[in-house]
Nucleic acid binder design. Structure first.
Length: 216
DNA sequence: CGCATTTGACCGGCGC
DNA sequence: GCGCCGGTCAAATGCG
């Protein structure tokens, strides 16, 4: 990975993806046999009292690309990968490598359209872009998106906004196909209703003609 | 040698 | 109360 080739190349993500199958192995045995009572694991969550969960805005992008991990000009470090329910493709979790940046990115592939990647950004960057990338994706997204107003009107490119891909006709397994997206949208809408999410939308084909050409 | 990636384990919440 | 699901961390490994 790490090879952001916009061209069509064998995606690095494939191979055997055995779904969790509900209860295979990982559920139900949080403790091995010995623990030693080591508390330095993760049991401590010294969270400040009164501090609620971080409910930051999330931005979902539907991009049609053969390769996941779209280069937006930032450096991301993958910190986890989990298989999606009812999906042969796994979901990857990325985090900004910048120290003070708490931005997280979620990348997932469409179940029906392997060529479609759903990237979800969470939070906003608070640091300059690394000059490592020679102005490739710099200025990729509109300023309105990089600097969203918490209470301001969403200045999103509605032109690119879309609700759902095709598939209006119900299929045999509604819980498989349509439900997949429905689950993605429903919770968000509900969330926005409760917590007033500034903005949310699904974009399609946001990928520029060519990101970066291979360079020797 | 440093860092990005990988994989497994575990926590936290929600549902039933 | 337990089961399931999603998400995150942590240690190990590989690669540069």
């Amino acid at each position: 990975m790490g090879t952001p080739n916009s061209s069509i190349s064998s995606s690095s993500s494939e191979a055997g993806y055995e779904e969790d199958s509900h209860k295979s192995k990982k559920d139900g045995q949080p403790k091995g046999s010995e623990d030693g009572g080591e508390s330095s694991k993760k049991g401590n969550k010294a969270k400040t009292k009164g501090e609620k969960k971080q409910r930051e805005p999330r931005f979902a992008f539907m991009t049609k690309s053969e390769v996941d991990h779209l280069e937006d000009g930032y450096r991301w470090r993958k910190y986890g990968q989990k298989a999606v329910k009812n999906s042969p493709y796994p979901r990857s979790y990325y985090r900004c490598t910048t120290q003070k940046c708490t931005v997280k990115k979620r990348v997932e592939r469409s179940f029906q359209d392997p060529s479609t990647v759903i990237t979800t950004y969470e939070g906003q960057h608070n640091h300059p872009l690394p000059t490592t990338l020679r102005g490739s994706a710099a200025g990729l997204f509109p300023p309105s998106m990089l600097t969203p107003s918490p209470l301001g009107p969403p200045s999103f490119p509605h032109e690119l906004l879309m609700q759902m891909p095709n598939h209006h006709h119900h299929m045999n397994n509604q819980a498989d196909t349509g439900s997949m997206f429905a689950q993605n949208v429903s919770p968000l809408q509900q969330y926005s209703h409760q917590h007033q999410v500034p903005d949310y939308g699904l974009l399609q084909d946001m990928v520029p003609p060519r990101f970066f050409k291979h360079e020797p």
